[in-house]
């Protein structure tokens, strides 16, 4: 039995510790906002927070996540400044990578109130978007950093 703390809720799972956390979150807990994109930590679709840090959930086993505070896109407040900015700037197209993008950006804003362009680029570089929503992502992060005011 592995006990997990996800979005403030405790889950007990009968599972071997070597399963990637991504699949546990998605297919066991059915929190499907966290996406599978590559399985090798190269696309960022599966980004979640572990103890407040943005991590690729495909690169962490459920055993390693035991006892840690896990937050997924569903656990990020519905009125989080980034979620609002993402709507305001109309960021998503297909939308598949967006939960990962938002979770990555959320860590950035938690640590840097007003990140520079360079900081935004460097932090967000690991998150792929095939639709090319990058210009909108950049604008949405800046909007959220400015407290939602243009």
């Amino acid at each position: 039995m592995i006990s997990l703390l996800v979005n403030g809720k405790r889950y007990k799972l009968d599972i071997t510790p070597d399963v990637p956390l991504l699949w546990v979150i998605r297919e066991h807990l059915k929190l499907a906002g966290t996406k599978y994109g590559c399985g090798i930590g190269m696309c960022g679709c599966c980004t979640i927070h572990i103890n407040g840090k943005a991590k690729r959930s495909c690169q962490i086993t459920v055993g390693q996540a035991k006892g840690k505070k896990i937050t997924t896109i569903e656990g990020l407040s519905a009125s989080h400044p980034l979620k609002k900015a993402w709507v305001e700037e109309q960021v998503p197209q297909c939308g598949y990578c967006q939960p990962g993008q938002i979770m990555q950006a959320a860590e950035l804003l938690a640590e840097h109130r007003n990140p520079s362009d360079e900081k935004i680029m460097k932090t967000m570089e690991g998150n792929l978007c095939r639709c090319g929503t990058y210009p909108h992502i950049k604008r949405a992060i800046k909007l959220a950093a400015q407290g939602g005011k243009k």
């Binding site: 499907a32 599978y36 519905a78 960021v91 939308g95 967006q98």
Partner: peptide
């Protein structure tokens, strides 16, 4: 967009 931002949009996966 609102559903896609909340992680609630249902894709095939």
């Amino acid at each position: 967009i609102p559903d896609k931002v909340q992680g609630a949009a249902v894709f095939g996966m």
